[in-house]
Structures are given as structure tokens and as C-alpha cells.
Amino acid sequence: MFKKFSLLLLVLVATPIQADIRIFACEPEWAELARALGGEQIYTATTNQQDPHHIQARPSLIAKARRADLLICTGAELEIGWLPLLLRKSGNPKIQAGQPGYFMATDYVILLDKPTQLDRSQGDVHSSGNPHVHLDPERMLQVAENLSKTLIQIDPSNQSTYQAKLESFSQEWQAMMQRLDKQIFTGKSMVVYHNSWLYLQQWLGLKQSATLEPKPGIPPTSSHLSRVLATLQQSPANMIVYAKYQDGKAAKWLTQKTNIPIVALDFSPATEESLIHWFERTVNQIAAILK
């Protein structure tokens, strides 16, 4: 039995298959960023209808991780419930922590909201800070530059392509940032479901007046909602925002009580939607409410 197995092992080691690099992206934003930067064979583990905190280490994901040359995820414990298991089960050395093929976007930017106190009575807090950096266009540029370097490191033969792609992406991205009129957001406030929009709020100058979750990861309770309602009756917010993968019930209830406009946003690009298109669309959706 052992002999047969070691023989099998030998055969497999001896015949490496060289192909274009295969990319495993944990969330659609990283898939789209990789595509914009020259990646071609990209598998996206989640859709924008799914909460990346709560994905299961499904057999299909393990099978995809097995063959990946590059893993692109958010990091900062966002995928802690499933990614470690995928990595261990994959038997794939290229995407293990510390390898070039292990790319965690939050490793390359400074994170906000790093908790000073780690206590689960505060909910499911991320010890390294708020991981949802893809909503900050400045940070996205930093991530893009680093991801481009990683792509070159893994696939040096296509260096010039990756560099050209980065150049054009950066230009388009910066043009998009210029195009967006941030003035109308200044000083406006929003009620959110989960503290998912922190980076976008920072960039646009929006304020967050309340979260519908009493603690991160804990679904809204009626007592907490009534407190939020009382706060809003004192000082109303400009809008109530939730991601489409989040439960909209609490937000809708609050809208009925307060008449504050509500908007459900795509937390990540839709299938086959470019990163720039998604980001601009999202910001414009918020702007439309404020107009």
C-alpha cells in the first residue's frame, strides 16, 4: 500500500503542469482587482450576496484552493472561520502563509479601529482592526501596487503586462476618485447594520450615527433597536445603509418609524462588474439619497 502510494507521489512530483497562474480570490473585490491588474484565471470563493465572515469550508472551495497559485483575501481575521481550514486541507504549498502566493490585502495598509481591549463581550471583534479596506479608494491603490508586485513575483515572464495594467488601472482609478464629488457627503450621517463602511465614511467625510447590530456579529435585538430609534428621534441621520447580504428587516423597520431614507448597497462588485464601476455606482447610490 505504502509502495503504491509513494510511487503515485513520485509520478505527481515529477510532472509539474505549467499553465497561466490560477488565482483564488476570497471576495469579489479582490477577484476584480486581480482581473484589472492582469490576472486571467480567477476563481471567486464568494459572491456579493454572501457574508464573508460566515462562509463554510465547502469541498468545492478546498478543491479550488488545491490548484491555486495565488490566494488573494482580505485578511485581518475576516476569513478566520474558513480560510485556515482551506489552507490546511488544500495540501498546496504555494498559498500557505509566508509564501508569495499568500496575499492578504489588509497586510499592506494601515487598519482603523484596532481594538484596545480584546474581549468577546464586545462582540466578534477583529483584533487587528476593521478589515473592510476595499471601501477606501486610497487604500485600494496601495493594495493594487502591492498586488501587482506579487503578480510579477509569481509570474515574472509577464512583468511588462502587469506593469502596464497597473499603470492604466491607477490612472482610471484616480480619475474616478476625481470625478466623484465628495462635497455633498461632508457632515452627513448614516445608520449602518454592521461597522462595514468605516473606510468609505472616512473617505467621503460621512459620519456614522448608529449600528443596528448591538455588538459586531450579534443580530439586531428589539431593545437595541428601540434605543437606536430614540437616538434618531433626538438627532436624525441622513440615511440607513446595509449591505445586500445583511438582513434588511431591522433597517426597514427603522425606516418606517423614522422616514429616514434607506439604501441596500452591494458590498462587493457583482458578477462580471469591474471594480471601478462598482465603486462609482455605490458612491453614486449614496449621493442620490442625499440629493
Binding site: 485581518a76 497586510d107 494601515i110 487587528s128 482592526g129 502591492n146
Partner: peptide, 13 residues
């Protein structure tokens, strides 16, 4: 410095 990650996170702190 760019090739080096700013943060370093693992499954456990």
C-alpha cells in the same frame, strides 16, 4: 518598503 506587508496577521494573535 512596499514589498513588505505593514501588518502581519495569523490565525491567532
Amino acid at each position: 518598503t512596499q514589498s513588505k506587508p505593514i501588518n502581519n496577521q495569523a490565525e491567532n494573535s
